[in-house]
Amino acid sequence: MTLAAQFPASVATFRSEHGFSITVARLRGLLADKGMTIFVDIDQADAAAQVGMTLRPTRLIVFGNPRAGTPVMHVNACAGLLLPLKALVWEDDARVTWLAIDDVTGALVDGYGLEASLVEPLANAKVLVQMAASRDPA
């Protein structure tokens, strides 16, 4: 599999400086601190275990801020297919933790015909995901 196939251009991927559990906690904390609503936190490894399968630690966190997403969906209801936003946290085979977020702003502008200024607030989520991965300043 090529790197492009693993990480499409719209997906921002960050190597975490922390272990899996700490990374999840940092992301959840940053989202809450910025007024984001965490709608659901799906433990995909647990879901796999429930059907007798194994998956490395993997969590999908679905989140957003209705103040940013509602105006977008008001203009184009089908934008709700991309909203709320989602962040993925997973551990690879080398036990390195990764975070990823699909930057939907381009798709909302190009594919859904929305004004860039309307979707611009959604781009801030990428910064929060990157912050969750980074080492705290000394």
Rank of each mutant, 00 (worst) to 15 (best):
A77K: 05
T70C: 03
H18T: 01
T54W: 00
F63S: 08
N65G: 03
P71G: 07
G19I: 00
L3A: 13
F63G: 09
S117E: 15
T2A: 12
M36E: 14
V40I: 03
G64M: 02
L3N: 10
A45Q: 10
G52M: 07
L122Q: 08
L30F: 06
M1N: 13
L82K: 11
N65Y: 01
A138F: 00
F7M: 12
A79W: 08
M131C: 09
W90K: 08
A49H: 06
G19M: 02
D103L: 02
R26T: 10
S10P: 14
L85M: 15
I42M: 11
G111D: 15
P57L: 04
V109C: 11
W98V: 04
I22E: 15
T2P: 15
D136A: 12
G113W: 01
L81N: 11
M73S: 07
T58G: 07
L122H: 09
L99E: 03
V119R: 06
V62S: 05
A5S: 14
A49L: 02
L128V: 10
M131R: 14
K86F: 00
A48L: 04
G52F: 00
G111W: 10
L122M: 07
D33Y: 08
T54L: 07
L99W: 00
T58W: 14
G69F: 00
G106N: 09
V40W: 05
S10R: 13
A32H: 08
L114I: 01
D43E: 08
R28K: 13
